[in-house]
């Protein structure tokens, strides 16, 4: 049994046409690769362009005589529509910018509101701390008042004690004097 593929005429046709195509293109390449061809191409394109130019000029002239719009007239109208579209486009972009700046402002406002909330929170906290501080201050002044009263009482007591001690000292001196007086006649009797 042979491993060779059966002959496929279409495959061969494909290969032959590829080769033929390549050879023909190479031939064209060679034929066109000279100064004469370039000169011919230049002249051909120039004469073609001149002919086209004359034709379009005559067309324009004829159309203007017949009061008929030409391709250029239609193009000019279309250009106006394009310009309008461009202006709309520009306006749309400006709207974008406006909406962008509005979004930015909104974001800033949101940030400011958040900061304000924070400030308010801190103020409320400070306020409550202040009232607590006021209470403490009142308590402290009460305490101070009591302390002053106590101090006054203490000084009164001190004075009282002092006067009591003075009076007691006086009494003691008096008693000592009286006792010495009582003892003087007895001493005199003994001497006798």
């Amino acid at each position: 049994m042979s491993n060779n593929r059966p002959y496929d005429p279409f495959d061969s046709l494909s290969k032959i046409t590829s080769q033929l195509e390549k050879q023909m293109n190479d031939l064209i390449y060679q034929v066109t690769d000279n100064k004469e061809f370039v000169r011919l191409l230049k002249r051909g394109s120039l004469s073609h362009t001149l002919l086209q130019e004359r034709l379009s000029k005559n067309q324009e002239l004829l159309a203007s005589q017949l009061n008929m719009p030409t391709k250029n007239d239609l193009a000019n109208v279309a250009k106006i529509a394009i310009q309008t579209e461009e202006k709309l486009d520009g306006l749309e972009e400006q709207l974008w910018n406006l909406s962008d700046s509005a979004d930015k402002t909104n974001q800033e406002i949101v940030t400011i509101v958040e900061i304000s909330k924070e400030v308010m929170k801190v103020t409320t906290q400070l306020k409550s701390e202040l009232s607590e501080f006021g209470k403490e201050k009142a308590e402290l002044s009460e305490f101070k008042k009591e302390y002053m009263e106590l101090k006054e009482e203490m000084s009164t007591m001190k004075e009282l004690l002092k006067s009591f001690i003075t009076s007691e000292e006086n009494n003691l001196t008096e008693m000592k004097k009286q006792k010495s007086k009582q003892l003087e006649p007895a001493k005199a009797g003994n001497k006798k």
């Binding site: 046709l13 032959i16 046409t17 195509e21 023909m24």
Partner: peptide, 14 residues
């Protein structure tokens, strides 16, 4: 690229 081009039709037939 390729001034004469007909091999693709042969490829289609293939």
């Amino acid at each position: 690229s390729s001034p004469i081009h007909f091999s693709s039709y042969a490829t289609l037939l293939n």
